[in-house]
């Protein structure tokens, strides 16, 4: 029964990891910007949802909307105020990385100053497990996480495949000049990628506020997982990032079946290293050098 329990826990965690990784992967895939501050969007969304629900007692949908608006505005501001000016001048990878990293730290400190530096969580019966079989505990939030992840991926996949803007986003990563030829503005397409990529962290942030809880420094962990899932899944592939997130969540939990708990986090990086060594293009990424 322990194995089944670990599997359920892995699916729940994997769904949350996948939701956060897909946002990062979408932004990176479309714009080639290494958006390290993606974790900050997660932190902002999580804290605003918590503040809305636990402090000012807003209805959940209103708090979720507030979190979404804040995450999208943050993503758009990053694109407009930080990345675009840097790219206009030199577009060095390290300059972008350091700028985004700096913003992540500023957000961490601002959140600490505004909401306090301690652990916060949304208390809800949805995170309370019930024993469905002897020794198998499942919380409603586990089922919700998996369904929400599936719903978001379906909608996002349809959006990217069927809409002009979705196709433009995919095209932007291949050839920005071609996007211009078709009468679209690459800067505008890039803003859409940031808006959607930032919005898609919101469900993960909300679910985390109910399950593991939040602290101002949580963004760094989120970023680490998003990056690992993107590499494991294949850079530029949304489906790959989703599979990567799910694989990492499952590996982290199933490792407890045979290993001591202190190895659970190391397993994530073992998976990452194995992919880097044996399949650097990830699950669904293109082989290096392919055009």
């Amino acid at each position: 029964m322990l194995l089944l329990q670990l599997l359920v826990n892995g699916l729940q965690l994997g769904a949350i990891y996948a939701l956060t990784a897909v946002g990062f992967s979408l932004i990176f895939g479309a714009t080639k910007i290494f958006h390290v501050a993606h974790g900050a969007a997660f932190t902002i969304a999580g804290y605003l949802f918590w503040w809305g629900v636990a402090t000012v007692h807003l209805p959940w949908p209103v708090a979720a909307l507030l979190a979404t608006v804040a995450a999208v505005v943050f993503g758009l501001m990053m694109e407009r105020v930080v990345y675009r000016p840097i790219q206009r001048h030199e577009a060095s990878f390290f300059t972008v990385f350091i700028a985004a990293f700096g913003v992540q730290i500023i957000v961490q400190n601002l959140i600490g100053m505004i909401f306090g530096r301690s652990f916060v969580s949304v208390t809800t019966s949805l995170s309370r497990s019930v024993e469905v079989l002897p020794g198998l505990f499942i919380a409603p939030v586990a089922v919700i996480s998996i369904l929400v992840a599936l719903a978001f991926f379906t909608v996002l996949t349809l959006y990217l495949a069927r809409t002009h803007m979705g196709m433009a986003m995919r095209a932007l990563s291949e050839n920005p000049d071609l996007v211009r030829v078709f009468g679209l503005d690459p800067a505008r397409v890039s803003q859409y990628a940031f808006a959607i990529g930032s919005a898609i962290v919101v469900p993960g942030a909300i679910l985390t506020s109910m399950t593991a809880g939040l602290n101002p420094a949580i963004g760094a962990h989120v970023m680490l997982i998003s990056l690992a899932a993107t590499i494991v899944g294949g850079i530029g592939s949304l489906r790959g990032a989703a599979y990567g997130g799910m694989l990492l969540g499952l590996a982290e939990n199933l490792a407890l079946w045979i290993l001591d708990p202190q190895w659970s986090e190391a397993v994530t990086f073992v998976v990452l290293f194995l992919f880097i060594i044996f399949k650097p293009s990830g699950f669904l990424g293109r082989p290096l050098g392919a055009k």
Partner: peptide, 14 residues
């Protein structure tokens, strides 16, 4: 024993 940066403990509960 758990890692210092670990944040997920549902399986530890099991």
């Amino acid at each position: 024993q758990i890692p210092r940066n670990a944040q997920q403990f549902t399986s530890i509960a099991a």
